[in-house]
Design a protein around this nucleic acid. Structure first.
Lengths: 240, 240
DNA sequence: GTCTATAGACGGATAGAC
DNA sequence: GTCTATCCGTCTATAGAC
């Protein structure tokens, strides 16, 4: 994600050279290019911010370090994001979008084995693909969740409520043991996110290197087995 | 834990008044009293440090705020703990001691249901009794565990290795399903610590108030049931 | 041992030239 | 839109009187 940038971008000189005559077919209009620059710089900053926030925490991260990794002067960071907190919130919102995509794999399916297994796999995959984001998210909650109360109340809570209902339905139909739905969901979150958030501990205890893709897939399947056994899920078709 | 302190302590005046004649039976010797003051101030500072580190993180916490909560001037904090990092490390070490006491309830017993159940209960109780400490611990690991590599390598790893062996023994004797011992232990850690570390999220999703003692005990038993089912533990005496 | 005052470094944010 | 220089606040740590 580290990114060095040439000091005198010729692209930017072209922008001003084209000036008002830029509205031709060949060259995209000035406004469009400006938007592209903005988009690219913002994305770059968001990605680097996620890194630094994960490594150092909200207070430990400095805008100077984030800007440096993005290959921009600190002042530019403040041009795109007025305050450090605004940048942090954008990172959290981006993370929620990813969380939400994984969450929707918890289909309100007939088959709890399929639905729960699929959800656990999606959460594990998210932990594998974006471990730094998971750390930012976890750290925010640990330190009080002050900057994501709105996300929790307006986005996560409704989602959780619907899944609790689904789980209660499965229990009523005898497809699941009599688990507390909340506790069960928390267990899924806890174990799947553990692999991203606590990887420094896992590496210290089980060997320095990060898991290979293959090893991670095996881990995933073991977690799925543990979770399915924990809730005693059975498929509605085959009696087992 | 907040603590205001009278500016002109008469106790301290007595210290100097007694001076050299203090070596009598009635009054404890000066050196002894000094030691008591040190002990009391250090304990106070450690407790307040745990609070502030949990709330704000390592970098977000300021020595000024920790000292203020302990009712001491900032300079006194630096008298007892030379640097903020030294104070932080002491907090981590204290936390490990508590962790270790809970860990030893994982008896190398014959009965996995008893041993695992007892361990889960001890970990849940630790989360209930010292949630702020759990957050400091978790935050430290999330941000790279840079200040506890020694604890992880020299203290936690040996402990984990022995328990893995015990679990493998139970599996070999047919008292446990064929779980991956590591994954299973991580699951126990993840779910039990979740109740301390992520309580801000739990409160946001399930109601503002913290759990009552009774509700927490019920939670604990539900977690025990989930964990026991997950590993398929059976008692060696009764075939179930 | 206690406490005031302050040194010295760093961080977030901005002014203003280009 | 970019970037240098800088303001101003806060932070850790310490000096030195009591």
């Amino acid at each position: 994600m580290r990114h060095t940038r040439q000091k005198n971008s010729t692209m930017r000189h072209d922008d001003t050279a084209n000036g008002i005559t830029a509205n031709e077919e060949a060259a995209p209009p000035l406004r469009r290019r400006r938007a592209q620059i903005r988009e690219s710089n913002e994305a770059q900053l968001l990605a680097c911010a996620e890194e630094v926030f994960a490594e150092k925490g909200l207070e430990g991260a400095s805008t100077a370090m984030i800007a440096e990794r993005a290959g921009l002067p600190k002042a530019n960071l403040h041009y795109y994001f007025p305050t450090k907190l605004a940048l942090y919130r954008r990172v959290l919102e981006d993370l929620f979008e990813d969380w939400h995509r994984a969450a929707d794999t918890f289909e309100c399916s007939d088959d709890p084995v399929e639905a729960i297994g699929g959800y656990v796999r999606a959460k594990m995959e998210l932990s594998r693909r974006r471990p730094l984001g998971s750390k930012v998210w976890a750290s925010e909650i640990i330190h009080g969740a002050h900057h994501m109360q709105d996300i929790l109340n307006e986005r996560v809570k409704p989602w959780l409520d619907t899944r609790v209902t689904v789980i209660e339905g499965w229990i009523a139909r005898g497809l699941l043991a009599q688990v507390e739905p909340d506790t069960f969901m928390f267990m899924i979150w806890a174990i799947t996110q553990h692999y991203a958030d606590f990887d420094a501990q896992i590496r210290a205890l089980k060997g320095k290197r990060a898991l290979t893709r293959r090893a991670f897939d095996e881990q995933t399947e073991e977690v799925v087995r543990l979770v399915i056994r924990a809730c005693g899920a059975v498929s509605p078709r085959c009696g087992q």
